[in-house]
Design a protein around this nucleic acid. Sequence first.
DNA 1: CCAACCTTGACACGATCGTGGTAAGGTTGC
DNA 2: GCAACCTTACCACGATCGTGTCAAGGTTGG
Lengths: 121, 121
Amino acid sequence: MDALTINEAAETTGWSPRMLRYVERLGLIEPARSGGGYRLYGPAELQRLRTLRELLDTHGLGLGEIGFALRLRRDRTLRDAVEAWFEAQPARPEHVPASDWLSWEQDKHSRLLAAAGAPRT
Amino acid sequence: MDALTINEAAETTGWSPRMLRYVERLGLIEPARSGGGYRLYGPAELQRLRTLRELLDTHGLGLGEIGFALRLRRDRTLRDAVEAWFEAQPARPEHVPASDWLSWEQDKHSRLLAAAGAPRT
DNA sequence: CCAACCTTGACACGATCGTGGTAAGGTTGC
DNA sequence: GCAACCTTACCACGATCGTGTCAAGGTTGG
């Protein structure tokens, strides 16, 4: 079998064994397990570990941020909620009188909330 | 003028003035400025501050995570790099039901297009 | 013109993150 | 069977985050 144990994987990827477990706990890279529970890193996981390091280095990211990106991908509700909050940032119509502006803003907000809660509307 | 100063905005939104400055430094909500440099919070900003708090509370997020989501939206290179890393996942994510996986896969392209610059619906 | 408010910047402090180490015990393979 | 490796769980410790407070100085508006 061409799968490496955690220390071997650490050796060839540059991550520490401790960090490999941490990366796994974040849900980023989950190696297969042997019958007795040993982690088994195959070529795919090793490659992914190397590209992960490159991703972090070239963009100055932390593991937590990639973990959050993963959450965003997996949790549609979360993604839609965050998306909706950012969408609610239109160009401000400065020419609209303040009172109308306020009601327009409030109306927009409820529309967004409705959209976030009812995906298929 | 219906714009509030930072302490007034803090009063009505529940954020502290300190936090309003922090939220601004993260690029999340950037109020207009008076000639002398005072922050001026209009109805739109106030509403956004309230929905931001709701977003954080209902999903257990931190400001840093929304800041990172903002980075993802603004920096296309970063977004594409993160996206590419997740795409290059030959291993099967067993904990994600196939239906969910499929649905976000299908949705991904339209979402990307929308984020790319397509105006509001 | 002056009290009340705002600005930026610095110091502080608990909570969490990223990372290491160690202990108690199970697995592997020669 | 046993040495070498792995597992989980815990303690530790510097770095960063979230938040407060204070200081020195500029703005606002009656």
